[in-house]
Amino acid sequence: MSPGIGSWITLSSALFCIGLVGVMLRRNPIVILLSLEIMLNAGNLLLVAGSRYVGGNDGHVLALTVMGVAAAEVVVGLGLVVALARRGAPLDVDELRSLHG
């Protein structure tokens, strides 16, 4: 007895949207990165669920790949945050707008 794929899709999209709202709303770059992690994991969940329901392990493979990429991305992101902190810039994405046109 397992829920249909629909439930998994619903759960996954719910988590994705929560992460998305977090990215859009928070001003602290670290928390934005955390929300980004939520989004990535929601995608991973969907991948694994899909491979279970369709058959075949390809979804697992892709999920692991995504995990690796997410790790690398977190490294870069946190490195940026540390560099910013070292220079004394305010850790607030609303203040970091030198790309303002």
Partner: peptide, 10 residues
């Protein structure tokens, strides 16, 4: 690349 980036940025 991520490792190098970490070193450089940090």
């Amino acid at each position: 690349v991520g490792a190098i980036a970490g070193v450089v940025l940090g």
